[in-house]
Design a protein around this nucleic acid. Structure first.
Lengths: 131, 131
DNA sequence: TGTTTGTTATATTACATATATAACATATAT
DNA sequence: ATATATGTTATATATGTAATATAACAAACA
């Protein structure tokens, strides 16, 4: 799986990494049970620090997307992905709210905003680059 | 206009403030030309520092949502709101992408995600509380 | 003249990000 | 047993952001 980090971005490296791994799982490129590179290995490949990768892995572990086994290494959650919890719904709505307000104030219509959402979602599932 | 800040949130205060002002404009509660409280006044009312309010106002000024006149004070952009620029589209897509991936990986269907987006958008426009 | 406005400057505190080393405990392979 | 590679934990450091606290400035208005 190809991962690209933008050092200039205002999004933290560990967040970028976690996001891209999440996309990989969502698209099916990474399947349940698939092994991920070791912390040190991935850090080496990406040219970043061990702890930054560790932070991203742990974030996804907290969310239930990864399992981290001592010595066995890190694998994609094989026992079923987490569902849409109340907490997740609330968080999603909160973040969507910020985006929707910015879109609405610029005159982007409701249907266009919804269509953008649908389009972006599909883009991830069909494993396209993004544009 | 009622503004509520969550000191426990991981979202910075100036971001929360800018978001809520944006929602106010999007919903029509704040109309073009409407005056906003002075920096010091709002800071006092919210119980936060002058510079935090200033940062929020300047952010919205940069985005073209506010006009800041010396002594006249701060008003909602009267000369037409900014449109949907390429840059905004790109930024919106980037942020939606992260949300869509998190939703998809938890099994939220494309239509449900789009419906959530539409629902949240409508919530803002119709000026409801949020839940 | 005095007050209020946004603006700018400095300083301080706290926290997050990212890095650099180092060491530890454990499971696997040799 | 020995070596190796794994995730984990602990320090330390540098940098940047967020938020606060004062203070002063220039300009507009009553």
């Amino acid at each position: 799986m190809f991962i690209e980090l933008d050092l200039q971005s205002d999004t933290p490296l560990y967040t970028q990494l976690a996001d891209q791994l999440t996309e990989g799982i969502a698209s099916g490129e990474l399947k349940p049970g698939d092994p991920l590179p070791s912390i040190r290995r991935l850090a080496e490949d990406l040219g970043i620090n061990l702890h930054t990768v560790n932070k991203a892995y742990n974030l996804l572990k907290q969310e239930g997307l990864l399992q981290v086994h001592r010595k066995t290494g890190v694998i994609v959650q094989p026992d079923g992905m987490p569902g849409v919890t109340e907490a997740f719904e609330a968080k999603l709505r909160r973040q969507l709210r910020s985006l929707a307000a910015a879109a609405a104030v610029r005159g982007m219509a409701e249907e266009v905003f919804a269509q953008e959402s649908k389009s972006v979602y599909r883009d991830i599932i069909t494993n396209r680059g993004g544009e």
